[in-house]
């Protein structure tokens, strides 16, 4: 297959043209409010797994995300090439959301959250007051440990954090996390990095109903499992307030094009939700008038 035939080869020019046609439509939506933070974009993207920092930088820009997630790790003390992710992130433009990825106990997550807060305080980034809480159950599934997540949420809320909670799509757990003071509950569509999309839309519907019943503006973000653009749209069409994803872009054959796709899908799904879809019906309804047909058919 020649480069011209390969659908995964897209020139930069065509991507830019695609963007111009849609940016004027942002007036249709209200901002996303997460605790004390407000954003025009409803897409939150991760910074992991990119082949290069330069590619990450381009994809972050293309996604038009305003919030980006990062992880907290030990400083490399030997063999450092001297390049730090912070050299590729515009701290004036992005609100950093530090995660507690890799933590398997509540105390570990609280410790890592505090370290993240210290780093962001020193950087004078607005993300110093919040955390994406992940407390995982095991390494094979990377599914959240709901008991430890609830425990860590309580500790972090007491310590003044705005806690964005990664959790399963279980509505009861979601409600408990909200009751514990989570700023946002972020159910997984499917396991982290699995690309399986939204596995249980019915559970998410119940999550949305429970979390928003006394508080329509309570933000619910789909976090994890998104594989492609339609998964993002599906989440937004259900009424989720935003989507958080990383591998779906970073792992795509042409990450930069996928960054555009995810941005557009998030907007498309949101608009569709706001517009209100037609009900699904078993039988057809003609769009063209039934009267005046040139060759009339009888009922059969």
């Amino acid at each position: 297959m020649s480069a011209a035939d390969d659908p995964h080869t897209t020139s930069k020019n065509s991507v830019i043209e695609m963007t111009k046609t849609v940016t004027t439509e942002t007036v249709l939506d209200t901002p996303l409010t997460l605790g004390s933070h407000t954003f025009a974009s409803r897409l939150i993207v991760g910074t992991g797994k990119y082949a290069t920092f330069e590619l990450m930088q381009e994809c972050l820009a293309a996604s038009e995300a305003e919030v980006i997630t990062v992880a907290v790790r030990r400083e490399r003390l030997v063999d450092s090439d001297g390049r730090n992710i912070l050299d590729f992130i515009d701290l004036e433009r992005f609100t950093i959301l530090p995660n507690t990825a890799g933590c398997f106990a509540a105390d570990e997550a609280v410790r890592v959250a505090r370290l993240g807060r210290e780093i962001l305080t020193n950087l004078e980034n607005p993300g110093a007051d919040w955390v994406k809480l992940e407390v995982l159950g095991d390494t094979r599934t990377l599914l959240p440990d709901p008991v430890a997540t609830l425990d860590a949420t309580k500790q972090l809320v007491a310590d003044g954090f705005q806690v964005l909670c990664y959790t399963t799509d279980d509505p009861i757990t979601a409600k408990r996390l909200k009751d514990a003071g989570a700023t946002s509950v972020m159910p997984a569509g499917s396991p982290i990095g699995s690309g399986q999309g939204i596995l249980n839309p019915n559970n998410l519907r119940i999550c949305l109903e429970y979390l928003k019943e006394d508080d329509a503006d309570y933000p619910v973000i789909i976090d994890a499992g998104v594989g492609t653009a339609s998964d993002v749209s599906a989440a937004m069409e259900l009424g989720c307030d935003g989507v958080l994803l990383n591998t779906g872009i970073a792992g795509a054959k042409v990450a930069l094009t996928m960054a555009h796709a995810m941005k557009l899908a998030c907007r498309a799904g949101r608009y569709a939700y706001l517009a209100g879809r037609i009900p699904k019906k078993l039988y057809a309804t003609a769009s063209s008038p039934e009267r005046g047909v040139v060759t009339p058919r009888g009922p059969n």
Binding site: G46, G48, K49, Y50, V70, R73, N99
Partner: peptide, 10 residues
Amino acid sequence: LEIVTLVGGG
């Protein structure tokens, strides 16, 4: 002593 920094993550 722990010295930590930010790295790419989701």
